[in-house]
Design a protein around this nucleic acid. Structure first.
Lengths: 163, 163
DNA sequence: ACGCGAAACATGATACGTCATGTATCCTGC
DNA sequence: GCAGGATACATGACGTATCATGTTTCGCGT
């Protein structure tokens, strides 16, 4: 707004990139959320939690469980957010929590059968959605460029794994 | 999750782009929101509304106003979201609404003096933030690539203008 | 001139995210 | 072996987004 001396406003190239990014981000988020809710009755947050726990189950067997703090780090979520999320998911019967006998401060989460069934059923449609709305709209080169761009912006953040 | 026949899962290149994008998106959103709240005591939504109305004021003079529906289209927000947002902002004295005498179904919004002062004061720091966290971390070429990428993903959406 | 669908908003319920704070358990130095 | 700080979560308050629905006003056809 109002010229203020030494403010470096964004030039055209920067503005196009920034606005484009914001618009893409907002639309994509909204569309994926809507589709996931319609096709599987779950939120993106639900999906993230279930899919992470699902991967752990695939690796470690049917009664795999995970420390809540580890899950929070993996998702790069605030601990408080995850706590609320897990409470809601537990109420819906998708996951269960129990105190970790090794360190009684902590909790372990694991998928219930309905939780496992939910992610198995939801995943194909969601992946197809990510494809049709995102990756399939870009060339291989653009995918590689984008990965480089996000790395530059995230420059050396610890690394976790959403979705 | 569990192999399901004909699901085309994401390969490495696609996965890197997708995860990178999601991580960038989440972090950037959170950081900008936090900084804006700390430096100007407003949310990103507040900023978007104020900055749009601010631009209108710069173009049309001190007592410029805008139809709520036009603002919603410009921001690409749902009407309901904007209505709630404007109510809260009106309560804080940043904007005012009055019924449009030309079409009494509608409302016109305009900045109050405190609203104008707020955006004038907030903008420089926010732009600096966008720079340091985003555009300044990328090369000119990457900015251009990114704009092309977002256009491809948004492929022919009506176009509005966040921020 | 009147009836009726559409347009433009407002509102209430609900879900979600963040912040500030509370509680239990653990660990370390002394 | 026991304070005192740190760690791991839970919880309540609050702001915000979405959906469904309600209210007023327009405009159009007859």
């Amino acid at each position: 707004m109002a010229e203020q001396g030494e403010v470096r406003w964004l030039d055209d190239v920067e503005m196009n990139a920034w606005r484009g990014y914001r618009r893409m981000s907002i639309h994509l988020e909204a569309e994926l959320a809507r589709d996931l809710l319609a096709s599987a009755g779950m939120s993106v947050s639900d999906y993230s939690v279930l899919s992470t726990l699902g991967r752990v189950r695939e690796e470690q067997g049917v009664d795999a469980s995970m420390r809540v703090s580890a899950l929070a780090r993996h998702l790069e979520w605030e601990q408080s957010r995850l706590s609320h999320q897990l409470r809601r998911m537990e109420e819906r019967g998708l996951v269960v929590r129990c105190t970790d006998e090794g360190d009684r401060r902590g909790q372990r989460v694991s998928l219930t059968e309905p939780g496992w069934a939910a992610i198995v059923e939801a995943a194909p449609a969601h992946v197809a959605d990510v494809r049709s709305r995102f990756t399939d709209r870009l060339t291989r080169e653009q995918l590689i460029q984008l990965a480089a761009i996000t790395d530059a912006v995230l420059c050396g953040l610890p690394a976790g794994a959403p979705d």
